[in-house]
């Protein structure tokens, strides 16, 4: 489905060029859950932005290929990009507080992708939006539909973001640190939501985080990045139980160790 081939991302500043991502390659099959971990500045967010087609500025040089169903995203025209975004791929960010338009009602924002990509009637859109709100766990959907973002909590907003990003049933969902700004219990709920979606609709999830534990809970495969390069990749279980690279070992060692109770995580 998604194939990244020897991707380089280079920032062409006035001075010497800075390489943010070096020779990055990985494949993603349909319905897979892949985690990218790494510290700040490791290039994981850049990778996500490139896959989302958001790095189209001319001063950022991109080499290599990002193939989506055989077509190179990096050479997409604006029209193709608009088609790809929202319909084929949905993305959510770290900041649920600012990712929603403050002056538009939740319902309107939920329906935006439908208005762009589908030819639905007003009523169909409404029903779709309500169903989607219910699906992401906002059970009071009819009320939320008419509310403004400032009336919702952070967790609820992130749910709305997920709902809005997935309303056209894209095949890929990129989640760039979606839980960082949320508290721990809400984090868990959001992860469950993503997992449920993945199981039910076969939505592939590219989960980007610096939090190894979350990645471990959610993903089947992991990619560990450091200074713009992949240092290790493989099945999540194997990478975390027997890391082969020094950096991965250090990362795992730096997880604060707390006595864990049984059944602490419903995800497992």
């Amino acid at each position: 489905m998604l194939k990244v081939k020897e991707l380089n991302i280079i920032f062409q500043d006035r001075g010497k060029p800075e390489t943010a991502v070096k020779q990055l390659s990985f494949d993603m099959r349909e319905g897979e859950r892949i985690g990218i971990v790494g510290e700040s500045g490791s290039g994981k967010t850049m990778t996500a932005l490139a896959i989302a087609g958001l790095l189209m500025r001319k001063d950022v040089k991109k080499q290599g290929e990002i193939l989506w169903e055989g077509k190179n995203i990096l050479s997409f025209h604006n029209k193709e990009l608009c088609q790809y975004r929202g319909k084929e791929m949905g993305m959510i960010f770290q900041e649920p507080m600012t990712s929603l338009n403050p002056v538009k009602k939740i319902g309107w924002q939920m329906e935006e992708s439908l208005r762009i990509h589908e030819k639905f009637t007003k009523k169909e859109r409404y029903e779709r939006a309500i169903a989607q709100l219910m699906e992401v766990g906002l059970l009071d959907a009819k009320k939320v539909y008419h509310q403004y973002p400032h009336e919702l909590s952070g967790g609820m907003r992130q749910r709305v973001m997920i709902g809005a990003a997935l309303i056209c049933n894209p095949k890929l969902m990129i989640a760039d640190e979606p839980t960082t700004a949320l508290d721990v219990t809400v984090q868990d709920q959001i992860l469950q939501l993503l997992k449920k979606r993945n199981k039910e609709k076969k939505t592939g999830i590219l989960f980007i985080s610096h939090d190894l534990e979350l990645v471990q809970k959610l993903c089947e495969r992991v990619i560990v990045m450091h200074k713009g390069m992949i240092v290790e990749k493989g099945l999540a279980r194997e990478v975390f139980t027997s890391p082969s690279h020094e950096y991965t070992k250090k990362l795992i060692a730096s997880i604060p160790k707390v006595e864990r109770r049984k059944g602490d995580s419903k995800l497992g």
Binding site: C82, F93, T98, S113, M161, A165
Partner: peptide, 26 residues
Amino acid sequence: NMDYVKSAKLMGAGPFRIIIFHIFPN
């Protein structure tokens, strides 16, 4: 450069749609 403009882009909104429906009301 607001996040909500970024999310509108990611929903596939074109530049004029973003200008008129997403930014203008703000």
